[in-house]
Computed example of a mutant assay.
Amino acid sequence: MADRALAGRAAVITGSNSGIGLGIAEALAGAGADLVINSFTDREEDHALARDLAARHGVEVRYVAADMSKGEDCRRLIEQAGRCDILVNNAGIQHVAPITDFPADKWDAIIAINLSSAFHTTAAALPMMRAAGWGRVVNIASAHGLTASPFKSAYVAAKHGIIGLTKVTALETAGEGITCNAICPGYVLTPIVEAQIPDQMKTHNMSREDVIAKVMLARQPSGQFATVEQMGGTAVFLCSGAADQITGTTISVDGGWTAL
């Protein structure tokens, strides 16, 4: 708790009961921000997670369930937060299939959760930020927001869209004490990525180690997964005074993937 640079700030992080979202929640709480964390479930363990974060970091933390595929739920999440100085749009899902076989309902769900939800939460949060004269919007995009891979049409389209939304938000808020930027992770070892490994092992008839090195990290020159702690540290930086003039851009945390 040495550096409490965000003490007095209130943050809402979507999709934050695991993975990158939880890593960012930990980092923002560690910097002194009060939090609203979120996912679509409403279990006792979700609320227990909020209590644990609060106890360990000495901040206020609430868990609010919201279905990020529904615009009204996204806006209600911000309203229920009551205050939003920092908005981290992290909620996301994935599905992999050729375009010709890609289920329409999967396309719709990925676009809704990975892209449209960020529009709705941002639209609801900006009036709060403007009233406060300060705000930070951090959108979790992806290396796939800057480049593409086959069989990920909906995900790539959504992440490219998030970067476009980031730029527009930055331009509309320039000079108001509000910034909007996107973090573009490469492969981060999260539950979503972990769940892909067994299928990749079957598809390629490889060991876990070979799938990680030769398939997943083949485009990540560092040969290492990024960590959720690194995502959290990047988000804290973007919320700091050092980033006051950083807006409308992307920060890649991808081990060199998009440098290729």
Rank of each mutant, 00 (worst) to 15 (best):
S117V: 14
D85H: 08
T121M: 13
A104G: 09
G82Y: 00
A66V: 10
C84K: 13
A109V: 11
R62L: 10
V88D: 03
I78K: 10
A104R: 14
A50S: 02
E79A: 13
R136C: 06
T41W: 03
L49S: 04
C84R: 14
E44H: 07
A112C: 08
H120Y: 14
H95V: 01
A123N: 09
F40M: 07
L87W: 00
H57K: 12
H57A: 12
I86Y: 15
R130D: 07
G135T: 00
S69C: 12
D101N: 13
A109Q: 14
C84A: 15
W107K: 05
T41A: 11
D67F: 00
A48K: 03
W107C: 08
V59R: 05
A125M: 13
V96T: 14
P127E: 02
T121S: 14
F102Y: 13
I93Q: 02
T121A: 13
C74L: 09
G133D: 02
S39K: 09
A132P: 03
N114C: 06
E45G: 04
E44Q: 10
S117E: 08
I86L: 15
N139W: 11
E79D: 13
V88R: 03
A131T: 15
T41Y: 03
V61D: 05
D67A: 01
C74F: 10
S116L: 12
T100R: 14
L49E: 01
N90T: 06
R136P: 09
R136V: 05
E44C: 04
A124P: 11
